[in-house]
């Protein structure tokens, strides 16, 4: 039921919310604006907001300095690859935990999550050495597997919370109808869980895209995703604000656009069972 809202109240909250939202968004907006400035305009005081000579030469220079496209492709392959791989392993597990729970299921789930709390620093050295001896350093395969393992607990947990919303009677009906376990999962469970799987996919692609410990430490150039690409701007060259902004914009634009477009799915799924 729509409640009556006074106009004044509505305008007050509208202005307040827009103000807060713009303040939160401002650093990103500023970065995007600065990426189109000349270096001189970028550090002009007082700052120039919109009235400057718009230029795209920063993008050209960034591209010249390091092959953006390769890092972009690496990011896509690594984040999507690790998430799909994770889903493949997680769906059967989540099915088990959601529909055949035992006394220990909750503990198992909590244990899985706790592996994510293990500080990466604690295992960095052995991972580095293992990767070196297996020849996985700076390979897409290596970093994809690591990111899959890192996000696996989150993927399992998210799927588990979605699966639990599916009434088990429907799966029993499928069993009565003669569906094998594979058919039960492929024809009934997965299609019913599509919204949940989609938001799991989205969130984990975002997390993998932005992961910046393992990608920084286990890749250098060949398999380096955008996180590594951008980290190279932390050196004093970062003081070239316009170029830094251009590189930043290039690094965040793909995931920002993806995130915005899929906002609805993402938000709907982003509850981790917090909303009963």
């Amino acid at each position: 039921m729509a409640r009556r809202v006074s106009n004044r109240r509505r305008w007050f909250f509208t202005i307040l919310a827009w103000g807060v939202a713009l303040a939160i968004f401002f650093p990103i907006l500023w970065t995007i604006l600065t990426s189109f400035k000349s270096e001189a305009d970028a550090i002009a005081s007082p700052p120039k907001f919109l009235f400057f000579d718009w230029t795209t030469e920063n993008y050209a220079e960034v591209q010249e300095r390091s092959p953006y496209l390769r890092h972009f492709l690496n990011s896509v392959i690594i984040s999507v690859g690790s998430t799909l791989l994770g889903l493949l392993i997680a769906i059967p597990s989540a099915w088990s935990m959601a529909f055949q729970p035992g006394k220990r299921t909750k503990d198992l789930l909590m244990w899985m999550l706790s592996t994510k709390m293990m500080p990466a620093a604690g295992v960095l050295i052995p991972m580095y050495l293992l990767f070196r001896s297996w020849g996985l350093l700076d390979t897409r395969l290596g970093i994809t597997v690591v990111l899959m393992l890192i996000n696996l607990p989150i993927i399992i947990w998210m799927l588990y919370t979605y699966f639990r919303e599916i009434p088990s009677e429907i799966l029993e009906a499928a069993r009565m109808d003669g569906a094998s376990l594979k058919n039960e999962i492929v024809h009934v469970l997965t299609p019913m869980a599509v919204p949940g799987i989609a938001s799991t996919l989205l969130l984990n692609v975002i997390l993998a895209w932005n992961e910046a410990f393992w990608t920084l430490n286990l890749t250098t150039s060949k398999a380096a995703p955008l996180t590594t690409f951008i980290a190279s701007y932390s050196s004093p060259e970062g003081l070239f604000y316009a170029k830094l902004s251009a590189a930043s914009t290039m690094a965040i634009a793909p995931i920002l656009i993806l995130g915005w477009f899929s906002q609805k799915q993402l938000v709907r799924g982003l509850t981790f069972g917090a909303v009963k």
Binding site: E169, I170, E172, A174, R175, G178, V194
Partner: peptide, 28 residues
């Protein structure tokens, strides 16, 4: 279950929400 050749109608009906009526009925 399927070997017993029994059919069951559930309390919640347990229809497959993503399938049309036709596909639901044809599923078994």
């Amino acid at each position: 279950p399927v070997k017993r050749k029994l059919a069951m109608v559930f309390q919640s009906y347990a229809l497959y929400p993503h399938m049309s009526v036709r596909k639901n009925i044809a599923f078994p």
